[in-house]
């Protein structure tokens, strides 16, 4: 079967090795990105690409693979950012330690909210997570003495390593390159494992999954917490990169957008989030030229992509590949049917 290469979520030994190789190649190419980027603005965008990739890829685990619509990823992102940022800015805690504490806090809050919420199905889970996000937004806004409220949290110091601050776009790029690369590898390891296969059954049918010995609730909870932890890491990176945090960055609108980007990239697909993050990072920048029309064009393109490529960019690529294969190999493609 040749068509298993790009996009097909199938995982077998060879394809597992193949995907890991693709990841290595992609990351090797990214390594030289700062050298060829025309200016710092582009490198800065690349850092946001990494942060968005962590967010979307981790959310994809919950939505794409477990089939659970979570609308509070923005809140976990924010909790990571605020926990890490407040500790460093107000309590002089080392950003590294702060990041670890932030991970602990996001993981723990995911556990607390997940324990009751993940027993709910479909829209009810969506609502519960949306409600949690709304509560977190209120807290970010109103705990002014800690968070700075609507004006934002200022004075967050950068990460520093061996006495050198990770402040410039280029140094932060390499830092984000390492963190995101490791996380992407771990995510692939997860997908390509016993646990991962168990997790991937949940999107089809929890009933069938439990009839095959999979404790669906436990799986959902573990994935939910793991995904929140990653969002927390993204939050710490964000806050120590731009040295600032503002509540609207983590509103439920962000959560909704992240879900949309999982879909636009192609859910339940390992490479989907790469496209999702690319679009989420680049398109708003490209649309700047449209000024007030920017948001409209964004919404319209979203509608069009989903209308014409319901399986996202990855689905579109697979479709295009199918057309090309069929165009060049007449009849042969039908033999297997």
């Amino acid at each position: 079967m040749t068509d298993a290469a790009i996009g097909a979520p199938t995982v077998t030994t060879q394809e597992g090795a193949h995907t890991r190789r693709m990841l290595a190649i992609l990351w090797a190419i990214l390594l030289i990105f700062p050298l060829i980027a025309p200016n710092n603005y582009i490198i800065n965008l690349a850092v946001f690409f990494f942060i968005n990739l962590i967010l979307i890829a981790s959310l994809n685990l919950v939505i794409g693979y477990c089939g659970q619509i979570s609308l509070c990823h923005g809140a976990f992102f924010g909790l990571g950012a605020y926990a890490s940022g407040v500790l460093a800015a107000k309590f002089d805690v080392s950003p590294w330690l702060g990041a670890v504490v932030a991970m602990g806090m996001t993981g723990f809050s995911a556990l607390l909210i997940g324990l009751p919420a993940l027993r709910l199905r479909g829209h009810y889970l969506a609502m519960a997570t949306l409600g949690f996000n709304a509560i977190m937004t209120v807290l970010f806004n109103e705990m002014i003495s800690l968070t700075g409220g609507p004006n934002g949290l200022t004075g967050v110091p950068p990460f520093s390593l061996f006495g050198v601050d990770i402040v410039t776009d280029t140094t932060f790029f390499y830092f984000a390159w390492v963190v995101t690369g490791v996380l992407m590898l771990l995510i692939y390891n997860l997908i390509d494992s016993r646990f991962g296969r168990g997790m991937r059954t949940l999107a089809t049918s929890e009933i069938a999954a439990s009839s095959l010995g999979i404790d669906s609730f436990r799986y959902k909870l573990i994935v939910f917490v793991a995904s929140a932890l990653m969002a927390g890491i993204a939050g710490s990176m964000y806050v120590h990169f731009i040295n600032f945090a503002s509540p609207e960055t983590f509103s439920f609108f962000t959560s909704v957008f992240l879900v949309v980007m999982v879909a636009v990239g192609g859910w339940g697909n390992y490479w989907g989030p790469v496209f999702g993050a690319l679009i989420y990072t680049a398109v708003p920048e490209l649309l700047r030229a449209f000024k007030d029309l920017e948001i409209f064009v964004f919404g319209l393109s979203m509608v069009l992509v989903l209308l014409f490529f319901p399986d996202g960019v990855v689905g579109g690529i697979r479709l295009a590949k199918g057309w090309i294969l069929r165009a060049y190999t007449p009849k042969a493609g039908d033999a297997g049917r």
């Binding site: 979520p9 199938t10 995982v11 077998t12 016993r194 296969r197 168990g198 991937r200 059954t201 999107a203 089809t204 049918s205 069938a208 999954a209 095959l212 010995g213 999979i214 339940g268």
Partner: peptide
């Protein structure tokens, strides 16, 4: 299970 190969579906059987 959709999004998985036939082989993976059978592998799921070994889960327990």
């Amino acid at each position: 299970f959709a999004g998985m190969s036939v082989l993976e579906n059978v592998m799921i059987g070994c889960h327990a």
